[in-house]
Design a protein around this nucleic acid. Structure first.
Lengths: 206, 206
DNA sequence: GTCTATACTAGGATAGAC
DNA sequence: GTCTATCCTAGTATAGAC
């Protein structure tokens, strides 16, 4: 049995609206109507829209990390984990990214309190990706000349840009195709296997 | 000598605001204040915000194609053109993409008249990229196993996602790094690639 | 064609009762 | 803690004069 307080309901509603409509386009009124909380309660818990927004932004940013950690720090060789990261099927391309979308909202970008969690989330993802890419290079799964930071950013842009293309097309295909393209390139570069199953024949570092 | 009519001034102002703030967050009032045109003139030329928005969206989408065409259908081998496309230095990553940003605006996405030019612009870019990639494969500059459509989408997502990462970081580096990563991968795959490692002369742009 | 004046709704927030 | 009532400004659009 879980008791959900008004405060939590407000944050949940704001989080959803942040995803669906962005920060600037979400009114306190819309939040109240979504969760059925009255005007007074809302301003009792959050002195302003900005405060509620900040709580919701943090909520959304936090929500995305566990999945990334589970894959990138999970089982499998480094290259397998990178490919798994690019292949996960729990995205909803046409709805956009809960975190990435916020960067296109001028009101969010202009307010450090709102943007900071977004920055941290991307930085954390970058750190994990670059680490796994370095492991892959060390393990001989990727050529040694590659720059892990560049490649890590490229993997994130593939996802983030995928949302943009999918929404523009009204079709998730570009999202899936871009990710497939990135996977193709990684596989094509794997020294051990031109077009084979990428299971590592040699032991990988632990 | 160029005479600029009110109508054109309105579209220009709306186009700029579309880039800076998005559609939903741009009010007719803001447009008028930017170009100094009165309320009456505005509604004389455009019966609603939506109509002005549609004209401005088309204006912005049209504006981006010539540069792309110049590079992708310009001189150089196919692979060189692809690398040039990924290396152009006329982007302003922290300001976002005039076209891509629109996909994050629910009011734009919900209105076919506003979204259509965006869809067409991305489709046109995709067509050109996929064509040049196919040429590169035919010319032996890229391996034959690659899927041109996938790779074309991945190149667009690299740019579009680059804007997202750069804005989140408050720094253009991720934008440049992601593009450099994509260039690295293309070079690493080029069969004719000199016996050297794929480390490009590092700086971000060429 | 362009202007000012006006109208109506929604966004954002406060006051005070319970 | 939560509610309703109220306030003020901005967003969007119309009316009618020049």
């Amino acid at each position: 049995m879980i008791l959900v307080g008004s405060r939590e309901q407000l944050v949940d509603a704001m989080s959803d609206l942040l995803w669906e409509r962005g920060y600037a386009a979400t009114s306190p009124r819309a939040v109240r109507e979504r969760c059925g909380i009255g005007q007074g309660s809302m301003y009792y818990h959050f002195p302003s829209k900005r405060d509620l927004g900040a709580a919701a932004v943090e909520h959304n940013c936090r929500a995305l990390l566990p999945g990334t950690i589970a894959i990138l720090e999970g089982p499998g060789s480094p290259l397998e984990r990178l490919i798994a990261y690019l292949s996960r099927d729990d995205h909803q391309p046409l709805k956009g990214c809960k975190v990435g979308r916020l960067t296109q909202d001028p009101e969010v970008v202009a307010d450090p309190a709102l943007l900071a969690p977004v920055k941290v989330a991307f930085a954390a993802t970058h750190g994990m990706l670059a680490g796994v890419i370095s492991e892959a290079i060390t393990a001989g799964e990727l050529p040694s000349g590659l720059n892990a930071d560049h490649l890590a950013d490229m993997m994130s842009t593939t996802i983030q840009g995928g949302y943009v293309l999918a929404i523009a097309a009204g079709d998730r295909a570009p999202f899936d195709n871009a990710r497939a393209g990135a996977v193709d390139l990684l596989r094509a570069l794997a020294p051990t296997s031109p077009s084979q199953d990428p299971t590592v024949p040699e032991g990988h570092l632990t």
